[in-house]
Design a protein around this nucleic acid. Structure first.
Length: 464
RNA sequence: GGUCCCAUCGUCUAACGGUUAGGACAGUUGGUUUUCAAUCAACUAAUCGGGGUUCGAUUCCCCGUGGGACCGCCA
């Protein structure tokens, strides 16, 4: 058995797409499950649009979600000569030919195809150039001599069998007029050079597979296994594009989604293992199989992402959560003053219970990480005369407390409830507003015990 | 339009010929003598339609319908 090798091959023309992340994840998971390797190939042959910073960003994004590639990243543009060599060889062997058609001619053919409402298939004019004279001063493109009759069948580990009539596959270009290789050639040669055993990629590459298989066959190379995973659709049910709102990984990081949560969500999108919903990294490696990847596309569902994130926020180690929160706030919100660290840390155990994102924790922790709180005018209205009176009475007794614990606080509050013949809310709500500036939030005992005694007194005194 | 693919609750999915069609998210309702975005409980909700095959079809086959992908000298 040869060692399994997979690859993720993004082009660095933009930030990493959420669909790309899932493709990378499936590749990585499969290779780990098979005890194989996972490589990263940067397809940067589109010089116009490829950017170095995107390459960095892609690697960082993958790392963020827990994916690291083996070895050094493979840079496609560095292998262009290899690709050209293969093109030459195909030419020599008669599997490719030079095409001198002008762009105009091709354009006309495309228009014709459109008019006839047919798929564009190049008319193969130069395939057998018997009565043609090579025009002077025209650089030819090299086209692959695609099979005309019969069908090409590719076994697919997810789709089953891809069976396409060769008549619909055109003689595609493998070398451009300027001599540079096209995707079909480069990707194929690279996969061969890298000894890739399993090509796992988006559904949108299915037709390419048929083209690429012919290159493998012509070169006498072993054809890798293919697995085309269904695409992720937007809310509208279309292929997710960069224009969609939450399409890049950054979009999720910035609202405070945890990497494990996103990984878990993406894993369960199009893949399942019994009724299990939550998978640790180890579990996902252990159970991952291409055979349990579904065939139909799935929609992105924000509420589910949030729900999984909530689960992770509640369950991960608190020290880890704390560090996550700190870095998150520093980058996407506002740096938290270290003087609040200890209070914040000991409050995390209840703050995390009411948050779906790190952003939520940040919002709910405002009363801890700011010296002064702000009360909205609407909440201020809730502090009527009775409420203020209660706060004053609470303060008086609170100042005399020796041991700040729940029992003692309970005593004070109970006393006030009895005295004023009100319910808990009558005391709890004014307190919460006075201490946090919000009528929502953690339990009142949690709030008080998380704050310094002096801080509580100070804030209660602010209410007049 | 051509080629190819797909089809179970609103969403993600389970059931690989025999289940009262299961779970999760969302939604709704109620409890939690304190808020709710927490928690607990309950409820609503699906096999796209029509033909076969079969003792029996969500499952296999065909047709229709709907949705999607591709149709670059981009990757």
């Amino acid at each position: 058995m040869t060692k399994v090798a997979t690859r993720f091959a993004p082009s660095p023309t933009g930030p990493l797409h959420i669909g790309g992340v899932r493709t990378a994840l499936f590749n990585w998971l499969f290779s780990k499950n098979q005890k194989g390797s996972f490589f990263l190939r940067i397809e940067d042959t589109d010089k116009e649009r490829s950017k170095k910073e995107y390459k960095k960003q892609i690697i960082q994004s993958l790392k963020w979600i827990g994916i690291e590639h083996d070895g050094k990243e493979y840079i496609q543009s560095e292998k262009i000569n290899e690709h050209k060599k293969v093109a030459e060889e195909l030419l020599k062997k008669g599997f490719a030919y030079k095409c001198y058609c002008s762009e105009k001619e091709i354009e006309e053919q495309k228009n014709m195809a459109k008019k006839k409402a047919m798929a564009f298939v190049y008319n193969r004019k130069w395939r057998e150039p018997k009565n043609l004279t090579v025009p002077a001063g025209v650089n030819p493109v090299i086209r692959f001599k695609s099979k005309i009759g019969g069908n090409t069948i590719v076994k697919d580990l997810v789709q089953g069998e891809i069976n396409i009539s060769n008549s619909t596959i055109e003689d595609f270009v493998i070398l451009r007029q300027d001599g540079s290789p096209t995707y079909q050639l480069s990707a194929t040669v690279d996969d061969h050079l890298m000894n890739i055993t399993h090509v796992i990629r988006g559904d949108d590459h299915k037709i390419n597979t048929v083209k690429q298989k012919q290159i493998y066959d012509s070169m006498g190379w072993e054809v890798p296994n293919f697995a085309h995973i269904p695409l992720i659709h937007s809310n509208e049910g279309k292929k997710l594009s960069k224009r969609d709102k939450a399409s890049t990984i950054e979009d999720y990081i910035k609202i405070g989604i945890l990497s494990d949560a996103l990984r878990n969500y993406l894993l369960r999108l199009g893949w399942s293992f019994k009724d299990k919903e939550i998978f640790t990294l180890e579990e996902s490696i252990k159970h991952f199989a291409l055979s349990s990847v579904g065939k139909s596309p799935s929609r992105l569902d924000m509420s589910r992402i949030l729900s999984i994130n909530e689960t992770y926020i509640k369950n991960i180690n608190e020290d880890k959560l704390f560090l996550n929160l700190k870095t998150y706030c520093e980058i996407y919100k506002k740096k938290i003053d270290p003087k609040f660290d200890s209070t914040l840390k000991k409050s995390l155990h209840f703050l995390k219970n009411k948050a779906k994102t790190l952003g939520n924790i940040y919002e709910n922790a405002q009363y801890i990480i700011k010296d002064q709180i702000q009360i909205s005018s609407e909440d201020l209205k809730l502090l009527d005369d009775l409420a203020k009176k209660i706060l004053k009475e609470f303060l008086k007794e609170f100042e005399n407390i020796k041991n700040l614990n729940k029992d003692n606080l309970e005593k004070i509050i109970k006393g006030l409830i009895d005295k004023h013949k009100i319910n808990f809310k009558g005391v709890g709500q004014p307190l919460r507003i006075a201490l946090t500036g919000s009528k929502f939030g953690p339990g009142i005992y949690d709030i008080i015990s998380s704050l310094d005694k002096n801080k509580v007194i100070e804030r209660l005194k602010m209410i007049k």
